[in-house]
Amino acid sequence: MSALISTRLRRAFGPVELAALLVLAALILGAAFGPWLIPTDPIAQDIGNMLLPPGAPGHLLGTDELGRDVLTRLIYGARVELVVALGASCLAMVLGVTLGLLGGYLGGIVEMVSMRLVDIILSFPPFIVALLFITIYGPGQGTLIVLLGVMLAPTFARLVYGQTLTVKRLEYVQAAVAFGASLPTRLFTVVLPNVAVPIILQFPITMAIALLTASGLRYLGIGIVPPTPSWGGMVASGQRFVSQDLWLIIIPGTAIVLTVLSFGLLGNALQYWLDARSAGDRR
C-alpha cells in the first residue's frame, strides 16, 4: 500500500515537476532571507552605473535606468509578489469554501444567495474592477489582496459547491444526521475533509493566477507605489529602454513566467498524486 503510493508520488513528480519545486523553493527562500543575504538597497540610485548589462562587476544581473541593482530589486519584488499571491489565494479559499459549503449543504435560500453572489462576482471584468477599487481605496498591497481574494473566490466556491452536492447524499453524511451530529460538526468534520482534495489542487493554480494578475496590474501602473520594486513594475519601466537594454524586461518577465509555470506544474503533480490516492480510497 505505502509502496503503491510512493510509486505514484514518484510518477507525479518527474524531473520537470521537481525542477518546478526547486524554483518555488528558491523563490520562497530568496524572498524570505534574500534581503539579509544581499545587503544592497533596492531603491538606491547610482546614475553613474545605469543600464549595466548582466554580469557587470558587483551587479550580477546588471542595473536599471537609475542604476539600481536588478537582482536586488528582483528579490525584493518577489516578496511583494508572493505576499500578494499567497494572501489573495488564502482569502479566496476561505471565502469560496465557506460560500460553496454552506450553499451546497444547506440548499434553499442559502444556496440561492451564495451562488448568485458568485455569479455576480464572476460577471465583473477583473481589470475594470481593479481600476475602480484602486481609484477609491488607493494603491497598496492590502487593497490588492482583498480585491484579488474576492475576484478569485468563485472558482473555489463552485468547486466546493459541486463536491458538497455529491457528498451530502452519501450515507456517511446521512449517518451523521441520524446519529445526532450538529450542523457545524457535519459541515466541518464530515463534509469538509471529504471535499478537501480539489481545494488543495486548486490552491497552487490560484496562486499562479493571482501572481499573474497582480503583475499585470502593476505593469499597467496600478496597485503598488513606486519606487517599491515589483516584477510587473520592472517590466513596465524596462519597456521604455527596450532599444538600449533588452535585459530589463527579459529578467523580470522570466521570473514571472517561471513562477507561474512552477505553480501550475505543482498543481498538476498534486492532482495526479492525490487523485490516484482518492481513487484508491474508493475501492
Binding site: L170, E171, Y172, Q174, A175, A176, A178, F179, G180, A181, S182, T185, V190, P193, N194, A196, D281, R282
Partner: peptide
C-alpha cells in the same frame, strides 16, 4: 441505523475507531 451500502456508509477520511465512536462524541 445500519445502511445498505458498505462502500459509502463510513466516512472515508476518518479511521474505523473514529467512525464507530462518532455518535458518542456528537
Amino acid at each position: 441505523i445500519v445502511f445498505q451500502d458498505p462502500a459509502s456508509s463510513l466516512n472515508p477520511r476518518a479511521t474505523v475507531g473514529s467512525n464507530i465512536t462518532a455518535p458518542l462524541r456528537w
